[in-house]
């Protein structure tokens, strides 16, 4: 993106996402740290809950609309909406306008919000044109080989592929090694993983094997759904691979235990700690 078209940072509403809210607050704080480092004023609207995807993807459009209206009302006054999730950002960007098709009041409001909504790494790189070398704090240090799982919604709905990699390239010590089929679904799929646990198991087992085959000590990604799924499988298999959200690594906030591991068990974020997955 050329400097002329770059947006001023302005006020960013953080769409926390329900999974970060419930499962991984650290990702929310990491997102704030990155956005503030990029010069944004960050606000966290209190009335946000969820983007409505579970309802939308189950065919319950009425419920999805009700939740979407809540999101629109909570965020529409802000310059940008940023979510540490390609899936939730994709829901707002791609599906909110569709959800209100033919609704004279809400469709334009959904459309306006959609245009100002971004996934975190895409916002930093594509919208702000941030220079990864300046943005990533010196404290962001992550030693060893990591691999990156491309989450499907972010990849295919929002074109998120190079942005997290460009940012990760500025993290000291980090050596990215791509797995085979990194663009193949991990088997999470929202309600899919509980409706069809057997199929989901096969898919996440395949993914875990691909992660393992890289020899990486950690797998990163941009969506908590996929990460919980992959971490849960690796944990069940007693595999010593740490799982983090990309924002945590970029913000240098890996001083908490990896996803699914014991709290505070890893004091030194550089090395895998024996026994964390026992």
């Amino acid at each position: 993106m050329s400097p002329e078209t770059q947006t001023t940072p302005g006020t960013v509403g953080l769409f926390v996402t329900c999974l970060v809210d419930l499962q991984r607050p650290n990702v929310g704080f990491a997102s704030i740290r990155l956005l503030e480092a990029a010069g944004c004023k960050v606000v966290v609207p209190e009335s946000q809950t969820c983007c409505g995807q579970p309802a939308y993807n189950s065919g319950d459009n009425a419920s999805a609309q009700r939740i979407a209206r809540n999101v629109i009302e909570a965020f529409e006054g802000l310059d940008h909406v940023v979510a540490p999730s390609g899936s939730c950002a994709g829901m707002i960007r791609e599906h909110f306008p569709e959800l209100f098709e033919g609704d004279a009041e809400w469709q334009p409001r959904a459309q306006a919000l959609a245009e100002r909504t971004h996934e975190l790494t895409s916002f930093l790189i594509d919208v702000l044109g941030a220079d990864p070398a300046q943005l990533i704090p010196d404290t962001a240090r992550f030693d060893g080989i990591v691999t990156y799982h491309d989450s499907c919604s972010g990849l295919r709905e929002l074109g998120i592929k190079e942005q997290p990699r460009a940012l990760l390239a500025s993290v000291t010590g980090l050596d990215l090694k791509e797995m085979d089929d990194t663009e193949v679904c991990c088997g999470f799929g929202g309600t899919f993983c509980v409706k069809y646990p057997d199929i989901s198991e096969r898919m996440v087992s395949d993914k875990a094997a691909l992660v393992k085959a890289t020899g990486a000590g950690a797998v990163l990604g941009g969506d908590m759904g996929c990460l919980l799924n992959i971490a849960g499988r690796l944990s069940r298999l007693d595999q010593d691979v740490r799982v983090y959200h990309v924002a945590e690594v970029l913000a240098g906030m890996t001083d908490v235990a990896p996803i699914g591991a014991v709290n505070n068990a890893i004091a030194d974020n550089g090395k895998a700690n024996e026994g964390t997955r026992r």
Partner: peptide
Amino acid sequence: GWTQARDLPAPQ
């Protein structure tokens, strides 16, 4: 459905 094949990470 979830824990059949994977652990459920505890909230952090």
